[in-house]
Amino acid sequence: MEIIDIKNLKKSYSGVTVLDIPNLEFKAGQSLGLVGNNGAGKTTLFRLILDLIQADSGSVLSKGEDVAKSEAWKHYTGSFIDEGFLIDYLTPDEYFQFIASLHGLTAGDLDKVLSKYEDFFAGEIRGKKKYIRDLSKGNQKKVGVVGALLGKPDILILDEPFANLDPSTQFRLRDELDKLNKETDMTLLISSHDLAHVAEFCERIVILDHGQIVKDIHTNEQTLKELEEFFIQKIRGGSPADTATEEVSD
């Protein structure tokens, strides 16, 4: 079953098309990795799925409902795009408590969920008298990612979750996402610049380039190689289609 269905989605800024997706469907329970260079349209796509920006045309259907019209998706979608999702003058504990209350979790429920992430936090997040704004970028990201998971969402959307994390935490997060993928029905949408990470646990990988889907791969042993090939090809100016279009920034 398709949990998210994207149809004829187009977005342009001052005449430059930054995203143009005729058709894209995500299967429920599937993990999807989104890769592409800066300006490829990854964040734009996520923002459209989260109804943060308005599409020029087309629509995103989440469980059959247009995200721009119904707000039902907010209850089953967890997301972390950037620090713009964090209330930075709260302590992490206060922030988690607030998110939990939005999803109707009791203090006991919250504690149970958070205790699962003790290792991930490495003792630097909970019970500390520090505001989120005073945490390092990496620790802020941990707060944001766990915050997105609190409501036990059906869909999890993370933009560059591995950036700014130390190597150990990157592997820990990758294992956690892998576990979520295998043990739950959660649909994962993860964008990353780290090809190895996404190739490791994503069942499907989509490459965006200049706002268009150029590859849609079901992951196998060859995938990492294929991905690397694609991006090396780009800098060597392999395909004429790539050099013709101009770089756009998002």
């Binding site: 989260l50 943060l52 713009g84 209330i87």
Partner: peptide, 14 residues
Amino acid sequence: WESAYFDGILTRAY
């Protein structure tokens, strides 16, 4: 005042 985390407001089940 809440501009810094406005995206969060829009995507949460507020």
